[in-house]
C-alpha cells in the first residue's frame, strides 16, 4: 500500500465520520489539519486516525487570510490550502467546489469523500459490497451535497473495477 500524506479541510472528515467509516483514513500515513478545521471537526466527528493538527505561523496566517478573501473561501479551507503550499504537500482533501477550484489553480491535487472511499476499496480496507453500501450511505446519511447521478457513476466504477471483489 502506498501511504499518502495529505492536508484536509473539514469536508471529507465530517461526511465519512457521519457514515462511520473512519477506517478509510488508514490510507494516509499522515493527515494534517489546520487549527480552524480541527475546531470544526472536533465537535462533529469521532477520533480520526492519523490526524495531526499543525499551527500556522504569522506568514502562513497572512497567506490564509489573503486566499480566503481572494477566492471567497472559509478560513479553514484557506488555512488547509496554505499548509499544502508551505509543506509542499500536493494532496488536499475537500468536498467544497470553490476550495477544489482554488486548490487546482494553486497547483494542488484536490480529492473528496468519494475519492477517499474508492481509494480505501482499492487498498483493500473495504470490499466491493462495503464500498457500494458506503457510497449509498454517503448520499442518504451524510451532510455531503452530492447528486444521485454522481453516486451512481461511482458505484458503476466500483462494480466495473476488475481487479478484486
Amino acid at each position: 500500500m502506498v501511504k499518502l500524506i495529505a492536508v484536509a479541510d473539514a469536508g471529507p472528515l465530517i461526511p465519512i465520520s457521519e457514515i462511520d467509516l473512519l477506517e478509510a483514513f488508514k490510507i494516509f500515513k499522515q493527515l494534517i489539519v489546520p487549527p480552524e478545521v480541527e475546531k470544526e471537526v472536533k465537535t462533529k466527528t469521532k477520533k480520526i486516525p492519523k490526524l495531526e493538527v499543525q499551527k500556522l505561523d504569522k506568514k502562513e496566517k497572512n497567506l490564509s487570510a489573503w486566499l480566503a478573501i481572494k477566492y471567497e473561501l472559509d478560513l479553514g479551507e484557506a488555512e488547509a490550502i496554505t499548509l499544502c503550499k508551505t509543506n509542499r504537500i500536493k494532496l488536499f482533501l475537500t468536498d467544497d467546489l470553490a476550495a477544489r477550484i482554488t486548490a487546482e489553480a494553486n497547483g494542488l491535487e484536490p480529492h473528496g469523500s468519494i475519492g477517499i472511499l474508492l481509494r480505501a476499496y482499492r487498498e483493500k480496507i473495504f470490499n466491493k459490497k462495503q464500498t457500494i453500501q458506503a457510497l449509498g450511505e454517503l448520499e442518504h446519511n451524510s451532510t455531503l451535497f452530492i447528486t444521485s447521478t454522481l453516486i451512481q457513476q461511482a458505484i458503476q466504477a466500483v462494480r466495473r473495477y476488475p481487479k478484486r471483489n
Partner: peptide, 19 residues
C-alpha cells in the same frame, strides 16, 4: 456548478481506483 462537480467526481473516481 453541476458540471464542475461532475468533473471533480470523475477525478475522484480515477484517483481512487487507478491514480
Amino acid at each position: 456548478r453541476l458540471e464542475t462537480l461532475n468533473d471533480a467526481i470523475k477525478k475522484d473516481i480515477e484517483w481512487g481506483l487507478n491514480g
